[in-house]
Write a protein that binds this DNA or RNA. Structure first.
Lengths: 215, 215
DNA sequence: AATACTTTGTTTAATTCTTGACAAACTGAA
DNA sequence: TTCAGTTTGTCAAGAATTAAACAAAGTATT
Protein backbone atom coordinates (compact mmCIF):
# COMPACT_ATOMS: atom_id res chain seq x y z
CA UNK A 1 0.00 0.00 0.00
CA UNK A 2 2.84 2.36 0.87
CA UNK A 3 4.07 2.02 -2.71
CA UNK A 4 1.63 0.88 -5.35
CA UNK A 5 4.00 -1.60 -6.94
CA UNK A 6 6.98 -0.33 -8.89
CA UNK A 7 7.10 -1.44 -12.49
CA UNK A 8 9.73 -3.87 -13.62
CA UNK A 9 11.16 -1.40 -16.11
CA UNK A 10 11.91 1.02 -13.33
CA UNK A 11 13.45 -1.65 -11.10
CA UNK A 12 15.82 -2.74 -13.83
CA UNK A 13 17.06 0.83 -14.20
CA UNK A 14 17.73 1.36 -10.50
CA UNK A 15 21.08 -0.47 -10.28
CA UNK A 16 22.35 1.59 -13.18
CA UNK A 17 21.29 4.84 -11.52
CA UNK A 18 23.07 3.71 -8.39
CA UNK A 19 26.21 2.91 -10.35
CA UNK A 20 26.29 6.22 -12.19
CA UNK A 21 25.65 8.19 -9.01
CA UNK A 22 28.56 6.39 -7.40
CA UNK A 23 30.83 7.44 -10.24
CA UNK A 24 29.58 11.01 -10.03
CA UNK A 25 30.23 11.06 -6.31
CA UNK A 26 33.75 9.77 -6.87
CA UNK A 27 34.31 12.51 -9.39
CA UNK A 28 33.36 15.17 -6.87
CA UNK A 29 29.83 15.95 -8.01
CA UNK A 30 27.73 17.35 -5.20
CA UNK A 31 24.54 18.01 -7.12
CA UNK A 32 23.12 17.01 -10.46
CA UNK A 33 20.02 17.88 -12.47
CA UNK A 34 17.88 15.33 -14.23
CA UNK A 35 18.90 16.95 -17.51
CA UNK A 36 22.62 16.53 -16.91
CA UNK A 37 22.18 12.97 -15.66
CA UNK A 38 20.03 12.16 -18.66
CA UNK A 39 22.85 13.24 -20.98
CA UNK A 40 25.37 11.10 -19.17
CA UNK A 41 23.15 8.03 -19.07
CA UNK A 42 21.48 8.27 -22.44
CA UNK A 43 17.96 8.54 -21.07
CA UNK A 44 15.37 11.32 -21.09
CA UNK A 45 15.27 13.73 -18.16
CA UNK A 46 11.56 13.11 -17.88
CA UNK A 47 12.06 9.42 -17.36
CA UNK A 48 14.65 9.99 -14.68
CA UNK A 49 12.40 12.36 -12.76
CA UNK A 50 9.49 9.97 -12.99
CA UNK A 51 11.60 7.00 -11.95
CA UNK A 52 12.87 8.74 -8.85
CA UNK A 53 9.41 9.95 -8.01
CA UNK A 54 8.17 6.40 -7.62
CA UNK A 55 9.99 6.33 -4.32
CA UNK A 56 9.53 9.86 -3.02
CA UNK A 57 10.60 13.40 -3.65
CA UNK A 58 14.37 13.41 -3.55
CA UNK A 59 15.01 16.55 -5.56
CA UNK A 60 14.61 20.23 -5.04
CA UNK A 61 13.25 22.66 -7.59
CA UNK A 62 15.78 25.01 -9.06
CA UNK A 63 18.61 22.94 -7.60
CA UNK A 64 18.38 19.33 -8.75
CA UNK A 65 19.38 16.30 -6.74
CA UNK A 66 22.08 15.95 -4.11
CA UNK A 67 24.24 13.19 -5.53
CA UNK A 68 25.27 11.60 -2.27
CA UNK A 69 21.82 11.72 -0.69
CA UNK A 70 20.12 10.38 -3.79
CA UNK A 71 22.60 7.55 -4.07
CA UNK A 72 22.06 6.62 -0.48
CA UNK A 73 18.29 6.66 -0.91
CA UNK A 74 18.44 4.42 -3.94
CA UNK A 75 20.85 2.16 -2.11
CA UNK A 76 18.33 1.80 0.68
CA UNK A 77 15.56 1.03 -1.81
CA UNK A 78 17.76 -1.64 -3.34
CA UNK A 79 18.53 -3.14 0.06
CA UNK A 80 22.22 -2.35 -0.19
CA UNK A 81 22.33 -1.19 3.40
CA UNK A 82 21.89 -4.83 4.41
CA UNK A 83 24.33 -7.72 4.19
CA UNK A 84 22.21 -10.74 3.44
CA UNK A 85 24.16 -13.96 4.04
CA UNK A 86 24.63 -15.88 0.79
CA UNK A 87 26.09 -19.21 -0.23
CA UNK A 88 27.58 -20.51 -3.47
CA UNK A 89 26.50 -23.83 -4.94
CA UNK A 90 28.99 -25.19 -7.44
CA UNK A 91 32.62 -24.19 -7.05
CA UNK A 92 33.77 -24.94 -10.58
CA UNK A 93 35.25 -22.46 -13.00
CA UNK A 94 32.26 -20.16 -13.10
CA UNK A 95 31.38 -20.31 -9.41
CA UNK A 96 34.94 -19.55 -8.46
CA UNK A 97 35.13 -16.62 -10.87
CA UNK A 98 31.84 -15.14 -9.67
CA UNK A 99 32.90 -15.44 -6.07
CA UNK A 100 36.18 -13.69 -6.83
CA UNK A 101 34.85 -11.09 -9.22
CA UNK A 102 31.77 -9.72 -7.46
CA UNK A 103 31.90 -7.16 -4.68
CA UNK A 104 29.19 -8.78 -2.60
CA UNK A 105 29.45 -6.42 0.34
CA UNK A 106 28.52 -3.46 -1.82
CA UNK A 107 25.65 -5.31 -3.46
CA UNK A 108 23.73 -6.14 -0.31
CA UNK A 109 25.15 -9.60 0.30
CA UNK A 110 27.81 -11.42 2.27
CA UNK A 111 29.21 -14.63 0.84
CA UNK A 112 29.59 -16.98 3.79
CA UNK A 113 29.88 -20.44 2.25
CA UNK A 114 30.71 -22.44 -0.87
CA UNK A 115 29.62 -25.98 -1.67
CA UNK A 116 30.34 -28.57 -4.31
CA UNK A 117 29.72 -32.25 -4.95
CA UNK A 118 33.07 -32.82 -6.64
CA UNK A 119 35.60 -34.43 -4.30
CA UNK A 120 38.46 -32.69 -6.06
CA UNK A 121 37.09 -29.24 -5.30
CA UNK A 122 36.08 -29.86 -1.70
CA UNK A 123 38.60 -28.35 0.67
CA UNK A 124 40.00 -25.95 -1.91
CA UNK A 125 39.95 -22.28 -1.08
CA UNK A 126 37.87 -19.59 -2.78
CA UNK A 127 38.96 -16.25 -1.44
CA UNK A 128 38.50 -16.62 2.29
CA UNK A 129 36.16 -19.58 2.02
CA UNK A 130 36.90 -23.28 2.02
CA UNK A 131 34.72 -25.33 -0.31
CA UNK A 132 32.49 -27.71 1.63
CA UNK A 133 30.69 -30.87 0.59
CA UNK A 134 26.97 -30.55 -0.15
CA UNK A 135 26.52 -33.19 2.55
CA UNK A 136 27.18 -30.42 5.03
CA UNK A 137 24.62 -28.11 3.45
CA UNK A 138 21.69 -28.72 5.82
CA UNK A 139 23.70 -28.46 8.98
CA UNK A 140 25.51 -25.39 7.71
CA UNK A 141 22.22 -23.67 6.88
CA UNK A 142 20.70 -24.61 10.22
CA UNK A 143 23.61 -23.00 11.94
CA UNK A 144 24.42 -19.99 9.73
CA UNK A 145 21.01 -19.19 8.25
CA UNK A 146 21.97 -18.08 4.75
CA UNK A 147 19.09 -16.40 2.91
CA UNK A 148 20.39 -16.26 -0.67
CA UNK A 149 22.17 -18.71 -2.97
CA UNK A 150 24.19 -18.60 -6.17
CA UNK A 151 23.56 -21.52 -8.49
CA UNK A 152 26.57 -22.50 -10.59
CA UNK A 153 25.80 -26.20 -10.89
CA UNK A 154 24.98 -28.25 -13.99
CA UNK A 155 21.42 -27.92 -15.19
CA UNK A 156 20.51 -31.48 -14.25
CA UNK A 157 21.29 -30.95 -10.60
CA UNK A 158 19.57 -27.62 -10.34
CA UNK A 159 15.92 -28.49 -9.80
CA UNK A 160 16.45 -30.96 -6.99
CA UNK A 161 19.00 -28.71 -5.33
CA UNK A 162 16.65 -25.76 -5.41
CA UNK A 163 14.02 -27.70 -3.48
CA UNK A 164 16.57 -28.67 -0.86
CA UNK A 165 17.72 -25.09 -0.58
CA UNK A 166 14.21 -23.76 -0.16
CA UNK A 167 13.69 -26.26 2.64
CA UNK A 168 16.89 -24.90 4.17
CA UNK A 169 15.38 -21.43 4.18
CA UNK A 170 16.86 -19.88 1.04
CA UNK A 171 14.65 -17.09 -0.27
CA UNK A 172 16.68 -15.70 -3.16
CA UNK A 173 18.43 -17.39 -6.05
CA UNK A 174 21.03 -15.95 -8.39
CA UNK A 175 20.81 -18.55 -11.10
CA UNK A 176 23.60 -19.15 -13.61
CA UNK A 177 22.44 -22.59 -14.77
CA UNK A 178 20.85 -23.08 -18.15
CA UNK A 179 17.70 -24.06 -16.35
CA UNK A 180 14.89 -21.47 -16.21
CA UNK A 181 14.14 -21.31 -12.54
CA UNK A 182 10.42 -20.84 -11.92
CA UNK A 183 9.17 -19.22 -8.76
CA UNK A 184 6.92 -22.08 -7.76
CA UNK A 185 7.02 -21.07 -4.11
CA UNK A 186 5.80 -17.63 -3.15
CA UNK A 187 8.23 -15.53 -1.25
CA UNK A 188 11.23 -16.67 -3.26
CA UNK A 189 13.11 -14.20 -5.44
CA UNK A 190 14.89 -15.38 -8.56
CA UNK A 191 17.32 -13.68 -10.88
CA UNK A 192 18.14 -15.79 -13.92
CA UNK A 193 21.34 -14.77 -15.64
CA UNK A 194 21.62 -16.92 -18.80
CA UNK A 195 24.94 -15.86 -20.21
CA UNK A 196 24.26 -18.03 -23.22
CA UNK A 197 21.17 -16.03 -24.11
CA UNK A 198 23.20 -12.86 -23.80
CA UNK A 199 25.80 -14.11 -26.25
CA UNK A 200 23.07 -15.29 -28.59
CA UNK A 201 21.57 -11.81 -28.54
CA UNK A 202 24.95 -10.42 -29.50
CA UNK A 203 25.03 -12.83 -32.41
CA UNK A 204 21.68 -11.53 -33.58
CA UNK A 205 22.76 -7.92 -33.29
CA UNK A 206 25.98 -8.55 -35.16
CA UNK A 207 24.28 -10.42 -37.97
CA UNK A 208 21.40 -8.00 -38.38
CA UNK A 209 23.20 -4.69 -38.15
CA UNK A 210 22.96 -3.93 -41.87
CA UNK A 211 19.19 -4.15 -41.69
CA UNK A 212 19.14 -1.44 -39.05
CA UNK A 213 21.74 0.72 -40.78
CA UNK A 214 19.73 0.74 -43.99
CA UNK A 215 16.76 2.34 -42.31
CA UNK B 1 12.86 -3.22 -46.03
CA UNK B 2 12.59 -6.99 -45.97
CA UNK B 3 11.76 -6.80 -42.27
CA UNK B 4 10.49 -3.53 -40.89
CA UNK B 5 12.72 -3.57 -37.83
CA UNK B 6 12.04 -6.10 -35.11
CA UNK B 7 11.39 -4.64 -31.68
CA UNK B 8 13.91 -5.10 -28.91
CA UNK B 9 11.41 -6.94 -26.74
CA UNK B 10 11.01 -9.60 -29.39
CA UNK B 11 14.75 -9.94 -29.92
CA UNK B 12 15.36 -10.52 -26.25
CA UNK B 13 12.85 -13.36 -26.25
CA UNK B 14 14.34 -15.15 -29.26
CA UNK B 15 17.25 -16.86 -27.48
CA UNK B 16 14.85 -18.24 -24.93
CA UNK B 17 12.57 -19.63 -27.64
CA UNK B 18 15.57 -21.23 -29.22
CA UNK B 19 16.61 -22.77 -25.94
CA UNK B 20 13.16 -24.16 -25.15
CA UNK B 21 12.74 -25.56 -28.64
CA UNK B 22 16.07 -27.32 -28.25
CA UNK B 23 14.89 -28.94 -25.05
CA UNK B 24 11.63 -29.97 -26.68
CA UNK B 25 13.49 -31.49 -29.59
CA UNK B 26 15.70 -33.43 -27.19
CA UNK B 27 12.62 -34.70 -25.44
CA UNK B 28 11.22 -36.08 -28.67
CA UNK B 29 8.67 -33.40 -29.47
CA UNK B 30 7.94 -33.23 -33.20
CA UNK B 31 5.27 -30.58 -33.14
CA UNK B 32 4.01 -28.00 -30.67
CA UNK B 33 1.19 -25.49 -30.55
CA UNK B 34 1.58 -21.92 -29.39
CA UNK B 35 -0.74 -22.76 -26.53
CA UNK B 36 1.37 -25.63 -25.25
CA UNK B 37 4.58 -23.68 -25.66
CA UNK B 38 3.05 -20.74 -23.85
CA UNK B 39 2.29 -22.94 -20.86
CA UNK B 40 5.83 -24.27 -20.75
CA UNK B 41 7.43 -20.86 -21.09
CA UNK B 42 5.08 -18.78 -19.01
CA UNK B 43 4.02 -16.49 -21.84
CA UNK B 44 0.74 -15.97 -23.67
CA UNK B 45 0.08 -17.97 -26.81
CA UNK B 46 -0.82 -14.75 -28.56
CA UNK B 47 2.58 -13.26 -27.88
CA UNK B 48 4.35 -16.34 -29.16
CA UNK B 49 2.40 -16.34 -32.41
CA UNK B 50 3.01 -12.66 -32.92
CA UNK B 51 6.70 -12.98 -32.17
CA UNK B 52 7.19 -15.77 -34.68
CA UNK B 53 5.19 -13.92 -37.27
CA UNK B 54 7.70 -11.08 -37.29
CA UNK B 55 9.95 -13.36 -39.27
CA UNK B 56 7.56 -15.27 -41.45
CA UNK B 57 4.85 -17.90 -41.29
CA UNK B 58 6.41 -20.91 -39.67
CA UNK B 59 3.26 -22.61 -38.44
CA UNK B 60 0.36 -24.45 -39.94
CA UNK B 61 -3.25 -23.99 -38.97
CA UNK B 62 -4.75 -26.91 -37.11
CA UNK B 63 -1.31 -28.42 -36.58
CA UNK B 64 0.99 -25.98 -34.84
CA UNK B 65 4.72 -25.64 -35.39
CA UNK B 66 7.25 -28.26 -36.35
CA UNK B 67 9.71 -28.10 -33.47
CA UNK B 68 12.84 -28.91 -35.42
CA UNK B 69 12.05 -26.64 -38.35
CA UNK B 70 11.07 -23.75 -36.14
CA UNK B 71 14.22 -24.10 -34.07
CA UNK B 72 16.33 -24.10 -37.17
CA UNK B 73 14.59 -21.00 -38.53
CA UNK B 74 15.09 -19.11 -35.29
CA UNK B 75 18.69 -20.26 -35.21
CA UNK B 76 19.20 -18.81 -38.65
CA UNK B 77 17.60 -15.52 -37.61
CA UNK B 78 19.95 -15.41 -34.62
CA UNK B 79 22.95 -16.08 -36.81
CA UNK B 80 23.72 -19.38 -35.13
CA UNK B 81 24.43 -21.03 -38.44
CA UNK B 82 27.62 -18.97 -38.59
CA UNK B 83 30.82 -19.26 -36.57
CA UNK B 84 32.05 -15.73 -36.11
CA UNK B 85 35.68 -15.68 -34.93
CA UNK B 86 35.95 -14.17 -31.45
CA UNK B 87 38.75 -13.25 -29.08
CA UNK B 88 38.93 -12.88 -25.32
CA UNK B 89 40.49 -9.84 -23.70
CA UNK B 90 41.46 -10.44 -20.10
CA UNK B 91 42.29 -13.97 -19.04
CA UNK B 92 41.78 -13.56 -15.30
CA UNK B 93 39.29 -15.45 -13.20
CA UNK B 94 36.22 -14.30 -15.05
CA UNK B 95 37.63 -14.48 -18.56
CA UNK B 96 38.88 -17.98 -17.96
CA UNK B 97 35.55 -19.09 -16.56
CA UNK B 98 33.58 -17.59 -19.44
CA UNK B 99 35.86 -19.22 -21.97
CA UNK B 100 35.43 -22.58 -20.28
CA UNK B 101 31.74 -22.32 -19.50
CA UNK B 102 30.21 -21.08 -22.73
CA UNK B 103 29.45 -23.29 -25.69
CA UNK B 104 30.60 -20.81 -28.31
CA UNK B 105 30.13 -23.07 -31.29
CA UNK B 106 26.41 -23.36 -30.60
CA UNK B 107 26.02 -19.65 -30.02
CA UNK B 108 27.31 -18.47 -33.37
CA UNK B 109 30.92 -17.89 -32.40
CA UNK B 110 34.34 -19.52 -32.43
CA UNK B 111 36.81 -18.52 -29.74
CA UNK B 112 40.17 -18.30 -31.51
CA UNK B 113 42.38 -16.24 -29.20
CA UNK B 114 42.89 -15.00 -25.64
CA UNK B 115 44.93 -12.00 -24.55
CA UNK B 116 46.11 -10.47 -21.31
CA UNK B 117 48.51 -7.81 -20.13
CA UNK B 118 49.54 -9.71 -17.01
CA UNK B 119 52.91 -11.48 -17.48
CA UNK B 120 51.87 -14.25 -15.12
CA UNK B 121 48.91 -15.23 -17.26
CA UNK B 122 50.61 -15.02 -20.63
CA UNK B 123 51.48 -18.44 -21.91
CA UNK B 124 48.96 -20.21 -19.68
CA UNK B 125 46.37 -22.39 -21.33
CA UNK B 126 42.64 -21.77 -21.49
CA UNK B 127 41.01 -24.80 -22.98
CA UNK B 128 42.78 -25.21 -26.30
CA UNK B 129 44.08 -21.66 -26.37
CA UNK B 130 47.35 -20.24 -25.11
CA UNK B 131 47.06 -16.76 -23.59
CA UNK B 132 48.92 -14.19 -25.66
CA UNK B 133 50.29 -10.77 -24.78
CA UNK B 134 48.21 -7.80 -25.89
CA UNK B 135 51.34 -6.69 -27.75
CA UNK B 136 50.51 -9.37 -30.28
CA UNK B 137 46.92 -8.17 -30.65
CA UNK B 138 47.28 -6.14 -33.85
CA UNK B 139 49.30 -8.70 -35.72
CA UNK B 140 47.01 -11.49 -34.58
CA UNK B 141 43.94 -9.58 -35.78
CA UNK B 142 45.57 -8.72 -39.09
CA UNK B 143 46.22 -12.38 -39.67
CA UNK B 144 43.16 -14.08 -38.17
CA UNK B 145 40.47 -11.40 -38.64
CA UNK B 146 38.41 -11.87 -35.49
CA UNK B 147 35.09 -10.02 -35.63
CA UNK B 148 33.91 -10.21 -32.03
CA UNK B 149 35.54 -9.69 -28.65
CA UNK B 150 34.83 -10.53 -25.02
CA UNK B 151 35.86 -7.82 -22.57
CA UNK B 152 36.92 -9.15 -19.17
CA UNK B 153 39.43 -6.44 -18.32
CA UNK B 154 39.35 -3.85 -15.51
CA UNK B 155 37.11 -0.88 -16.18
CA UNK B 156 40.03 1.55 -16.49
CA UNK B 157 41.57 -0.33 -19.40
CA UNK B 158 38.31 -0.84 -21.24
CA UNK B 159 37.78 2.41 -23.12
CA UNK B 160 41.22 2.59 -24.69
CA UNK B 161 41.20 -1.10 -25.51
CA UNK B 162 37.86 -0.81 -27.27
CA UNK B 163 39.21 1.83 -29.62
CA UNK B 164 42.18 -0.34 -30.46
CA UNK B 165 39.93 -3.29 -31.08
CA UNK B 166 37.63 -1.31 -33.36
CA UNK B 167 40.67 -0.26 -35.36
CA UNK B 168 41.55 -3.95 -35.56
CA UNK B 169 38.18 -4.65 -37.14
CA UNK B 170 36.14 -5.85 -34.17
CA UNK B 171 32.43 -5.29 -34.75
CA UNK B 172 30.84 -6.91 -31.71
CA UNK B 173 31.60 -6.63 -28.00
CA UNK B 174 30.46 -8.87 -25.20
CA UNK B 175 31.22 -6.56 -22.33
CA UNK B 176 31.69 -7.82 -18.76
CA UNK B 177 33.45 -4.73 -17.42
CA UNK B 178 31.69 -2.30 -15.11
CA UNK B 179 32.02 0.28 -17.82
CA UNK B 180 28.88 1.08 -19.85
CA UNK B 181 30.10 0.62 -23.36
CA UNK B 182 28.51 3.17 -25.71
CA UNK B 183 28.13 2.47 -29.40
CA UNK B 184 29.98 5.54 -30.56
CA UNK B 185 30.83 3.97 -33.89
CA UNK B 186 28.04 2.82 -36.15
CA UNK B 187 28.18 -0.75 -37.21
CA UNK B 188 29.38 -2.00 -33.84
CA UNK B 189 27.19 -4.29 -31.75
CA UNK B 190 27.45 -4.24 -27.97
CA UNK B 191 26.01 -6.51 -25.31
CA UNK B 192 26.68 -5.21 -21.81
CA UNK B 193 26.38 -7.88 -19.14
CA UNK B 194 26.78 -6.11 -15.77
CA UNK B 195 26.64 -8.99 -13.34
CA UNK B 196 26.73 -6.49 -10.50
CA UNK B 197 23.49 -4.90 -11.63
CA UNK B 198 21.94 -8.34 -11.82
CA UNK B 199 22.86 -9.12 -8.23
CA UNK B 200 21.65 -5.70 -7.14
CA UNK B 201 18.30 -6.42 -8.77
CA UNK B 202 18.11 -9.64 -6.78
CA UNK B 203 18.75 -7.66 -3.63
CA UNK B 204 15.84 -5.39 -4.48
CA UNK B 205 13.53 -8.30 -5.19
CA UNK B 206 14.48 -10.06 -1.97
CA UNK B 207 14.01 -6.97 0.16
CA UNK B 208 10.73 -5.88 -1.41
CA UNK B 209 8.91 -9.18 -1.68
CA UNK B 210 6.52 -8.47 1.19
CA UNK B 211 5.23 -5.40 -0.63
CA UNK B 212 4.26 -7.54 -3.58
CA UNK B 213 2.84 -10.37 -1.49
CA UNK B 214 0.53 -7.99 0.31
CA UNK B 215 -1.16 -6.93 -2.88
C1' DA C 1 -16.80 -36.51 -48.26
C1' DA C 2 -18.62 -34.27 -44.43
C1' DT C 3 -18.22 -32.47 -39.94
C1' DA C 4 -16.30 -31.17 -35.58
C1' DC C 5 -12.18 -29.68 -33.74
C1' DT C 6 -7.74 -27.36 -33.59
C1' DT C 7 -4.63 -23.75 -34.36
C1' DT C 8 -2.56 -20.25 -36.93
C1' DG C 9 -2.05 -15.39 -38.70
C1' DT C 10 -3.92 -11.04 -38.10
C1' DT C 11 -6.84 -7.42 -36.57
C1' DT C 12 -8.47 -4.84 -32.81
C1' DA C 13 -8.46 -3.55 -28.01
C1' DA C 14 -6.20 -2.92 -23.59
C1' DT C 15 -2.39 -2.03 -21.03
C1' DT C 16 2.03 -0.42 -20.00
C1' DC C 17 5.84 2.54 -20.73
C1' DT C 18 7.94 6.78 -22.37
C1' DT C 19 8.01 11.45 -23.61
C1' DG C 20 6.47 16.25 -23.63
C1' DA C 21 4.64 20.14 -21.26
C1' DC C 22 4.07 23.30 -17.57
C1' DA C 23 2.85 25.28 -12.95
C1' DA C 24 5.00 25.61 -8.59
C1' DA C 25 9.08 26.15 -6.04
C1' DC C 26 13.44 27.07 -5.38
C1' DT C 27 18.25 29.49 -6.41
C1' DG C 28 21.27 33.16 -6.90
C1' DA C 29 22.53 37.65 -8.47
C1' DA C 30 21.58 42.50 -8.42
C1' DT D 1 13.97 42.25 -1.58
C1' DT D 2 13.12 41.49 -6.21
C1' DC D 3 13.44 39.23 -10.45
C1' DA D 4 15.27 36.27 -14.04
C1' DG D 5 16.63 31.73 -14.48
C1' DT D 6 16.53 26.84 -13.30
C1' DT D 7 14.59 22.50 -12.21
C1' DT D 8 11.45 19.56 -10.02
C1' DG D 9 7.03 16.93 -9.60
C1' DT D 10 3.12 15.77 -12.12
C1' DC D 11 -0.32 15.49 -15.56
C1' DA D 12 -1.54 14.37 -20.04
C1' DA D 13 -0.37 12.91 -24.68
C1' DG D 14 1.94 9.61 -27.47
C1' DA D 15 4.27 5.24 -28.47
C1' DA D 16 5.12 0.69 -27.80
C1' DT D 17 3.99 -3.64 -26.05
C1' DT D 18 0.89 -7.22 -24.74
C1' DA D 19 -3.44 -9.60 -24.78
C1' DA D 20 -7.88 -10.84 -26.67
C1' DA D 21 -10.74 -12.07 -30.42
C1' DC D 22 -11.83 -14.23 -34.60
C1' DA D 23 -11.89 -15.61 -39.57
C1' DA D 24 -9.44 -18.71 -42.46
C1' DA D 25 -7.21 -22.94 -43.06
C1' DG D 26 -5.78 -26.81 -41.75
C1' DT D 27 -6.39 -31.81 -39.19
C1' DA D 28 -8.63 -35.95 -37.97
C1' DT D 29 -12.47 -38.84 -37.35
C1' DT D 30 -16.53 -40.89 -38.90
Amino acid sequence: MSKNSISNSVIRRLPRYYRFLGELENNGYVRISSRELSEKMGLTASQIRQDFNCFGEFGQQGYGYNVSDLRQEIGKILGLDKQTPMILLGAGNLGKAIAAHIDFRNKGFDLIGAFDINEELIGKEIGELKVKSVDELSSFCAENKPVAAILCVPMQSAEKLVNTLIECGIQAFWNFTHYDLKVAHKGVAVENVHLGDSLTTLSYCLNNMEDKDKK
